[in-house]
Design a protein around this nucleic acid. Structure first.
Lengths: 142, 142
DNA sequence: CTCATTGCAAATGGTTTGCATTGGG
DNA sequence: CCCAATGCAAACCATTTGCAATGAG
């Protein structure tokens, strides 16, 4: 099993494939290399477009596979095309620029404390959440 | 202008139409009556289905109109059909049951304080957010 | 060898749009 | 009356799927 630390903060996606019993194929390697070139997030379309050799279906199948392995997040701006982003942190939240679509991640300790506290105000058992902040990033901002 | 308080906590949707310069038509009244019958949220499909006299296109056009007036929220469970929910409170967050899809609202003061505090941890100007809690409601829960 | 994976093209599901018709104000 | 709103059907867009061909282990 491949355990080389390809980057210090991101999981080794090839190893993820192997550890989950998926084959390491040409198309999958191409897709993964492409994802790693887009630290600010990407759309499925962008990936498919830049990999003309790989079929759209395979792109979607691979994205779904990575979503299932919890190393990829899908998030949607209201009314926009969904954007995907490789996960850096184990548990984190996202910022999405409403102008350029750039996706960022953050991990706020304040947030973690809140999530624990909020349970008592909610009727039922919390099994997950979706927390996105819509921002104007420093490049697009005023 | 119609200002009767049809319900104590929900905005008067007919008045919303008038105040925004939209016509109060038969189909729109039908749709609004239908939405008000579903306090736990609904899908566009459910509305269209229960209103066979009204065309699907008009259902979507009316939902979009209400979304634009900020009296309706659209939210999506990962991988599921988007659900809509009429807003009760001016500013609130949602819970969605991952089993039955029931949508709830809550307004946590803890949350409001957090949202103010979190600004300093985020690079850029916050212009909005999307916060949904995925729960197992008391009916579906363990 | 064999079964997971791929490509292709057609199907899907949610939503939107063009255009002629209808109906509120 | 007139333009906003509607119905219909076709168009759209992201995504999924059936199936035969391919290729990783």
């Amino acid at each position: 099993m491949t355990t080389s630390a390809r980057t210090s903060t991101r999981p080794d996606l090839i190893a993820i494939l192997e550890n989950n019993g998926f084959r390491v194929t040409g198309p999958r390697i191409e897709i993964i290399k492409c994802l790693e070139k887009h630290p600010d997030g990407f759309t499925a379309e962008e990936v498919a477009e830049s990999l003309s050799q790989v079929s759209r279906a395979t792109v979607f199948r691979t994205l779904k596979l990575l979503l299932g392995a919890n190393v990829l997040c899908r998030l949607a701006l209201p009314g926009g095309t969904p954007r995907y982003s490789l996960s850096r942190e184990e548990h984190h939240h996202h910022t999405v620029c409403v102008n350029c679509g750039k996706v960022g991640e953050f991990k706020a300790s304040t947030m973690e404390r809140l999530l624990r506290a909020i349970g008592s105000e909610i009727p039922g058992e919390i099994v997950g959440h979706n927390i996105e902040f819509h921002i104007l990033c420093n490049t697009c901002g005023p």
